[in-house]
Write a protein that binds this DNA or RNA. Structure first.
Length: 254
DNA sequence: ATGGCTACGATCCGTAGA
């Protein structure tokens, strides 16, 4: 099974790139973030014509998540129980024996801001939600845009970013709390090139300078980690005209 | 000098992202 996560930064704008990428990469399951469209405008026909079923949870302008799969999506849930949120950030579904949780974690804007406090509250709720999901689902993946670079090696310029949003210690502690539930960062199960990132700023020629962050992750339970045969970042779509600022991350399982 | 793009929905600028 090939599982991917991609923040497309507007599904409307990126749909042609997504369809091309699905045809080339042929993932079995794809977690999408930042659809930026309401459910009535979800391009269901195009996605189905590409061979995928879809569960989606969208909203206008901001946020919005979806799970695409070549086989059936069962037990679809949206949001997190116990954490009412108007922002559409979480959708989960079972594909085969694997529970897939697709997340678009809050950005946080700036350390100390109201949005930062919301980000930390949100991650506390995510930890509880995932702990619950793990109860009934030994094979579990949490995939998406976490908006946290877990370690300095996930940051192009750790000095410049020190203490900033995406790398601050409370954010990294929130990420570690997920790992401590018994999840593994699939990317770090394997030897990886130095300076591997999944997001690059549109400004300042960020991609050309490889001035990026690794903030998109596929976290896997122990049972799934044992089956994981690769975990990579596909930079090809970031090189296209009018790209998303995020690249897809991809993990394969035996 | 702390912004520089991009997307969006509102107008030709503000909000948000990361």
């Amino acid at each position: 099974m090939k599982l991917a996560a991609w923040n497309v930064n507007s599904l409307k704008v990126r749909l042609p790139q997504l369809l091309d990428w699905l045809a080339q990469a042929r993932p079995d399951v794809v977690c999408l973030q930042e659809l930026k469209l309401e459910d009535a405008k979800f391009p269901r026909a195009e996605i189905e014509a590409a061979g995928y079923r879809a569960a989606f949870y969208g909203q206008k302008t901001y946020n919005g998540v979806a799970i695409l799969a070549r086989s059936a999506l069962a037990d679809v849930t949206t949001g997190m129980p116990g954490f009412p949120d108007e922002l559409k950030r979480v959708i989960a579904a079972t594909v085969g024996s694997v529970r897939v949780v697709c997340v678009y974690c809050p950005n946080g804007q700036a350390v100390g801001s109201e949005k930062y406090a919301y980000k930390l509250r949100w991650f506390a709720a995510l930890k509880e939600f995932i702990a619950g999901q793990m109860q009934g689902h030994p094979e579990l993946a949490v995939a998406g845009d976490f908006n946290i670079a877990p370690e300095d090696r996930d940051v192009h310029d750790p000095k410049a970013w020190e203490g900033q949003i995406h790398v601050s210690e409370p954010e990294r502690a929130a990420h570690r709390a997920l790992i401590d539930l018994g999840l593994a960062d699939s990317f770090r199960l394997f030897e990886q090139p130095e300076k591997s990132f999944s997001w690059w700023d549109y400004r300042m020629m960020g991609f050309r300078r490889n001035a990026g962050l690794r903030i998109d992750h596929i976290l896997v339970s122990a049972a799934l980690a044992r089956r994981c045969t690769s975990s990579t970042i596909d930079k090809a779509p970031r090189k296209l005209e009018r790209p998303s600022d995020h690249a897809p991350v991809v993990a394969e399982f035996s």
